Amino acid sequence: MSISIEQSAFAGLDTQKRLLNQVFKGELSAQGRFGFRGELAIKFATAVADEARPPELLAQQVISSAEPGAKKISFFSCYLLSFGYLDPLVTALSEYLEPSGKYFIYCNNIDFSKRYHLEYKGIPFYILPLDEATVYNELLELFGLERNDLKKLDTAGKINRIAENALQYSAVFPEISYADCLAGMGPVRDPGENRPV
């Protein structure tokens, strides 16, 4: 019997209408692991009259999963334009993250030669740089997954394979404090600049 999002750790986020532009939202495995791939609204824009406005802050390229019956999201990865968005992201996800989870945050404005491990509000994060690549491709590289091996899988199968590897990931990166990472981040680059129109 397949499970619905209401039975997963994503239920609250779905109710809050934070799960946007979904590429995938559903069961990942026969065991009942649930996954989401798309975008997550971190901070909503103030609504004017009945006008629906795009979120002020967005976590892009989200790939995430929750274990069967779990109340928390065990694996979450995304792209943030700025490391400074981590605090509102953690606030938005506060009910859904756990100290044993694996959370990978790719940021546009941290040093490209650096990777960090950071604990913030009791939650561990891997903080990694990202410019032109995608979170999906970076995760494959980080976990040593061959793209050809994933080609035969459907979207659920691909996300499930990434989730399995994420949950087992245990590489050690240099520890950094939130304050030090914030102090060291660069300016937020315009994602549209230098792109052909």
Rank of each mutant, 00 (worst) to 15 (best):
A183Q: 12
V90N: 05
Q22R: 13
L130K: 11
I162T: 00
F143P: 02
L40D: 05
K72I: 03
L139R: 05
P55D: 13
A166C: 03
E141C: 10
A47S: 13
S170F: 02
F36P: 07
S2M: 14
G84A: 14
T46W: 04
S94W: 00
A179G: 00
Y79V: 01
A9K: 05
P191L: 15
E56Y: 01
K151W: 00
A47V: 12
N109Q: 11
F104E: 02
D149H: 12
R18S: 09
Q168K: 09
M185F: 02
T91I: 04
S94R: 11
Y103H: 11
A92K: 08
T134S: 15
L150F: 10
C78Y: 02
T134N: 06
C181R: 08
A163M: 09
C181T: 11
N108T: 08
P54N: 12
G35D: 07
T46S: 11
I162Y: 08
A45W: 08
Y136S: 06
Y178F: 11
I159Q: 04
S177T: 15
F75M: 05
G69T: 11
R147V: 11
D87P: 00
M1Q: 14
L182T: 09
D87E: 15
F125N: 02
Q22F: 11
V62N: 05
K102W: 06
I105P: 01
V188I: 15
C107H: 02
E98M: 12
A45R: 09
F24K: 04
Y79F: 15
D111H: 13
R33A: 06
Q168C: 08
Q61W: 07
G26I: 03
K152E: 12
Q61M: 10
L58E: 04
Q60D: 15
D190F: 10
Y178S: 00
K151Y: 08
Y116D: 04
V197R: 10
L19N: 02
F76N: 01
L167D: 04
F112H: 08
E51I: 15
D50R: 13
L128I: 08
I110D: 03
S100R: 11
P88S: 07
Y116A: 01
L153G: 03
N108D: 15
L145M: 14
A11H: 07
A11P: 01
R115M: 09
A171D: 11
G184S: 15
G144T: 05
A52G: 08
